[in-house]
C-alpha cells in the first residue's frame, strides 16, 4: 500500500484516497508544434526501473494535484511537492541523489 503525504493539506493519504495521474514534468506541445513533438508529448512515457516522478490527485480529500518522487522498484517515496513547478525542487533531488547516486530520468539528474 502506497502512502503519500499531500503537500497541500498535510494528510498522510493512502492509495485509495488518491488518483494516479501518470508521469510528471512533461513538456506540453500544443497547436502549431511539430508532429513528432506532439506525438511524444501525447503518447511517449518513461517506464523506469527506479526513480520516477509522478502526478497524483488527492481526489477523496482536498482535491489538489501534486507530484511525488518515488522508486518503482522498492516503492520508497523520496518526497512529495506541490505541482506548481516544471521540475523537481532541489531538496527532493538531493534526497534522491543521496539514496540513488547517479540516477537520471529524461533530462533530470
Amino acid at each position: 500500500m502506497l502512502t503519500l503525504q499531500c503537500p497541500y493539506c498535510g494528510v498522510m493519504a493512502e492509495e485509495t484516497e488518491l488518483h494516479a495521474g501518470g508521469e510528471a514534468h512533461l513538456t506540453r506541445y500544443g497547436p502549431g508544434s511539430e508532429d513528432q513533438d506532439f506525438e511524444s508529448y501525447l503518447f511517449k512515457r518513461e517506464n523506469p526501473k527506479g526513480v520516477h516522478f509522478e502526478r497524483w490527485r488527492h481526489v477523496n480529500g482536498c482535491g489538489k494535484w501534486f507530484h511525488a518522487a518515488r522508486c518503482t522498484v522498492t516503492l520508497e517515496v523520496f518526497g512529495t511537492y506541490p505541482a506548481q513547478t516544471t521540475e523537481p525542487p532541489q531538496d527532493i533531488k538531493d534526497t534522491i541523489t543521496a539514496k540513488r547516486p547517479g540516477w537520471s530520468l529524461r533530462n533530470l539528474t
Binding site: V59, N60, G61, C62
Partner: peptide, 10 residues
C-alpha cells in the same frame, strides 16, 4: 477536519 472517503462516498 478530515476530508476522506467513507467506503465509496467522499
Amino acid at each position: 477536519v478530515r476530508r476522506t472517503r467513507f467506503a465509496q462516498a467522499a
